[in-house]
Amino acid sequence: MNDIALGQYVHKNSIIHSLDPRTKFICLLILMISIFLIPSPADYNPKISFIILGGFALIILIVVILTKISPLKYLKSLMQVIFIVSFVFIVQMLSKPSDETSLLDLNIKVSIIKIIIILTVFVLFFVFRKFLHYKLILFITLLVLSTYFLTIDFGKNLFKETPILHIYKYGLYKGAFFSLRILLVIMLSTVMTLTTKPTDLTNAIEWLLHPLTFIKLNVSIFAMMISLALRFIPTLFNEANKILKSQASRGADFKEGHLKDQIFQMVALLIPMFVVSYKRAEDLADAMEARGYIPGERRTKLNILRFKFSDYLTFILCVGIITGIILLRVL
């Protein structure tokens, strides 16, 4: 709960840090779109699909190195999506692309003794998971092993017809392709949050939204709201942690217990959170008013944005990349 991506800015002297936040924001969007425009291996030459994806991975790797930030930080944000990615991978792997013979057939033979063994292993895993390291790797290994265990002959078959789990070549390609794609997008946005100060980010958003002033929308208020959100989200997380800890010290445990208990405990967290936030908001509004803030009024700015040569260069590079991808799709 402590590790939220917002406001995770790491101060370093790098080319990426010194880029204008607007450049980073626009380029992030362009590169994300480009990654999603890479043709899928299912309806294109898989080799080329993967080569392009590899190219992007290489570019992102270079960018990551240029940021001078420890790779562990990036790894941490990748770990947050690992479950989703595994899920995508498995679903894609098992899906059947248009008429194709399967690469690998798994004959699932279910027997009572097998079910008991597998269940015991998993129950043991969940009981002892607090004391285990590398839980995720262990879990995946257990999953693979138990799948394999299901295919061998052991005990009396329950069903007459053995269900078959097909793994297709193209399914495997697609699984790898889609999961890699998600990981790359996450990496890109992590680069953005790690190298851009929240204030710069809000300034960039304000600038990008500027055209909206023509339809009489007050962008500066919106930017102030984002900025306050960025300021207070970490504080509220700390607050939630404090409440959780104080409730835990009185015997409540959020991770255990029945669903009913868990819901009850969530409510017990939400109510104090709401009260605290409301009091905070009131005080904050007073402080802002006392310090002369009038919504929508003209204000000078401490942080001003300036495009440099490197910004234009980065921008041109990114436009080049997306043009290349679009051409590839059209031709």
Binding site: G7, K197, P198, T199, S227, L228, L230, R231, T235, K279, R280, D283, L284, A287, M288, R291, G292, Y293, I294, E297, R298, R299, T300, K301, L302, N303
Partner: peptide, 21 residues
């Protein structure tokens, strides 16, 4: 805590000054 408006110390001091143009 409830009157710290800026995301950093610098930005917080700037907040009032910005309002004052």
């Amino acid at each position: 805590d409830n009157q710290f408006v800026g995301v950093t110390v610098k930005d917080d001091i700037a907040f009032g000054l910005e309002n004052k143009n």
